[in-house]
């Protein structure tokens, strides 16, 4: 039974398909022309990715939601500024990252973007069960880049190559960071279990 559950989980991860970049760019072009349907399609295709990325930066649900909102508003108003280069996600991530920076400045926190940026960490969700606990610990113990590569791959289903392109990192860096981050999370969770 447990093995079957694992197989289903693995399959669910593998089945998540990402939107081809050219399709994404076509939607952005449509948004630039005021096409509401294109905006809906773009949102549905990217919402989890954008939220995961915002969460990896803010480590806080409310802040991530705000950043997500501002990011999509910026996409609506600034879609005409996008120049197709085959990396629409990188463009969206840039907007999200800029909003995170602006929020940090507005809040008077001039520290560089990093773990110390947002003081509030994701509280342990009372109703989230083990999944919420794993996410909370991941946000807590992983570095910013580790959070990004883990969440973008595990949550958004981006391939490592796509993650590397979107974040502007070498593929080898993404692969090693991902492997190291998951091992770190696994060991941490197992030590946590021993303590309990």
């Amino acid at each position: 039974m447990f093995a079957l559950l694992l197989a289903v989980e693995a399959e669910s991860v593998r089945n998540r398909t990402t939107v081809p970049p050219d399709q994404c760019e076509a939607w952005i072009a449509g948004v630039a022309k005021g096409d509401a349907a294109a905006f809906d399609a773009l949102y549905r295709a990217t919402d989890r990715t954008v939220y995961a990325y915002a969460l990896s930066l803010t480590r806080n649900r409310e802040d991530a939601q705000d950043v997500m909102m501002e990011t999509y508003l910026s996409i609506r108003t600034g879609a005409h500024l996008y120049r197709p280069q085959g990396k629409p996600l990188a463009w969206i991530f840039t907007i999200a990252r800029n909003h995170v920076r602006m929020r940090a400045r507005t809040a008077g926190r001039e520290t560089p973007l990093g773990d110390a940026l947002f003081a509030r960490e994701e509280p342990a969700a009372a109703d989230g069960g083990e999944d919420a606990l794993v996410l909370r610990e991941a946000l807590h113990i992983l570095s910013e880049e580790e959070r990004q590569v883990v969440l973008l791959h595990a949550v958004s289903g981006l391939r490592h190559r796509e993650t590397a392109a979107a974040l502007g990192l070498p593929l080898a860096t993404v692969l090693s960071k991902y492997s190291r981050a998951l091992r770190k999370l696994k060991n941490h969770l197992e030590r946590l279990g021993e303590g309990d």
Binding site: L6, S12, E130, L189
Partner: peptide, 8 residues
């Protein structure tokens, strides 16, 4: 893979 699924 289990961790990935839980995070997802």
């Amino acid at each position: 893979r289990q961790l990935e699924a839980m995070l997802s």
